[in-house]
Design a protein around this nucleic acid. Structure first.
Lengths: 142, 142
DNA sequence: CTTTCTGCAAACTCTTTGCACTCGT
DNA sequence: ACGAGTGCAAAGAGTTTGCAGAAAG
């Protein structure tokens, strides 16, 4: 039987993501964990993030063309990604319409989970440049 | 001024994806285009897929831990991914216009687009093994 | 002591790119 | 002919993995 061990590295990874309010990437987590445990390796960070996600103690948000982001908010929610600055925002819908998948259910599909992400421009970026530049100059952050 | 050229490679890529009913990956498209144009390169396939997506003549479906899949269905729709066999299915909801993002709108977010993907087990896989194996044996296809 | 976990570095997957050449227009 | 598009091969980002040694139980 597999006995999960409690290591400093695992604890640090969990705590770093828990304390973060910015949906850090694996690299971000690595950097922050390093402040405490200067000898951790990126591989270990990845392994522990993976483990914590599997244990449902953390969530991953996979994004097209970007590194995965980690999230300690466990309550069901979705995300908004600002295409200009790359900031990822939690979006908790109180009216979460239960996502009527009955058509799929009836067709014999078994739905375990889903992911919904919105893309657009955040308030800060709109304020900074309301008329989005014609030239393509995205991909600035991370 | 940029003058778009009409090349065999571009036409073949578009046609291959258009004829496909299985959401091919870039590699799949590459293989199929090769039947006709044995000298195409994977880089060209990627470049053309990218171009076609930018022109809204094709759609990409980005999936966690998997290669992107291409889709010629232009009407708004979502997807279902079978976690056992990797098959991606179009899911057209008639009741789609929902997705009430007014809370975000009011907070100053500008929403351009969104993506919604469901994960689970497709009818075929359920029939093949109703009681999903306890051991993790995913990642079979592609 | 045993076994899991770690650090390190190499490998891997998917995708993008630089460059010289080709072929639409 | 001009230059967008191509083939090729190399680079790149992000993530995974094999292995010997460290350390948790």
């Amino acid at each position: 039987m597999t006995t999960a061990r409690h290591t400093r590295q695992l604890a640090a990874v969990l705590e770093v993501v828990g304390d973060a309010d910015d949906h850090p990437t694996a690299e971000d987590v690595y950097t922050r964990v390093r402040c405490r445990l200067p000898r951790v390796s990126l591989g270990t960070v990845y392994r522990n993030l993976q483990k914590l996600v599997a244990q449902q103690r953390l969530r991953v948000v996979q994004l097209p063309h970007r590194a995965a982001r980690y999230d300690s908010m466990l309550q069901p929610h979705d995300h908004f990604l600002c295409e200009r600055c790359g900031t990822l925002t939690d979006w908790v819908r109180e009216d979460r319409p239960q996502l009527d998948s009955s058509a799929l259910d009836q067709a014999g599909y078994l739905v375990h989970a889903h992911s919904l992400t919105l893309y657009g421009v955040c308030p800060d970026c709109r304020a900074a440049a309301p008329h989005r530049g014609v030239g393509r100059d995205r991909r600035r952050h991370r």
